[in-house]
């Protein structure tokens, strides 16, 4: 005799069976855990290192700095610039004629000093320039 719809399990009854199957999920044995973990570590690729990156091309500023002797020279240049600006603004008393007289032989405080004191031969050059 053929089975009719009434004889079959209905959707609710089937759903209860599926739910029971979900709840009775098998748990892995310790042996399986060990094997799977061992496989995973055995197949683990070596850690990828940082990719080789081409060194960056030096810029214009870096070229200029290198030309004057690198960063230490740049530091000296900056220091000298700051000192010059400061001396110009402060006009310190210590830098008067008498201290310069000690620095420049033949300098007289009464007559002052000329460019020739700092650059010997400059007078001759001035004469040439004056004569045209």
């Amino acid at each position: 005799m053929a089975m009719n719809e009434h004889d079959m399990l209905n959707d609710t009854e089937l759903a209860a069976l599926f739910e029971a199957a979900q709840e009775s999920a098998p748990l892995p044995s310790q042996k399986l855990w060990d094997q799977v973990h061992q496989d995973a570590l055995a197949a683990l690729p070596p850690p990828r290192g940082v990719a080789n990156v081409a060194p960056a091309q030096p810029g214009i500023l870096a070229g200029i700095i290198a030309a004057i002797g690198g960063w230490p020279s740049l530091a000296g240049l900056v220091t000298a610039t700051i000192a010059g600006v400061w001396i110009g603004f402060a006009n310190p008393d210590a830098l008067n004629d008498s201290t310069i007289a000690g620095l420049l032989p033949g300098f007289s405080a009464t007559q002052g000093y000329d460019l020739d004191d700092f650059a010997p031969g400059f007078t001759g050059l001035s004469a040439i320039l004056e004569e045209g």
Partner: peptide, 23 residues
Amino acid sequence: AYGNGDREAAFVLTTRFTPRVLG
């Protein structure tokens, strides 16, 4: 991460997938 050699990823993946695949 596992493909990049991460051991911790190996542990988490085995823990996630083993029961599911077995079931």
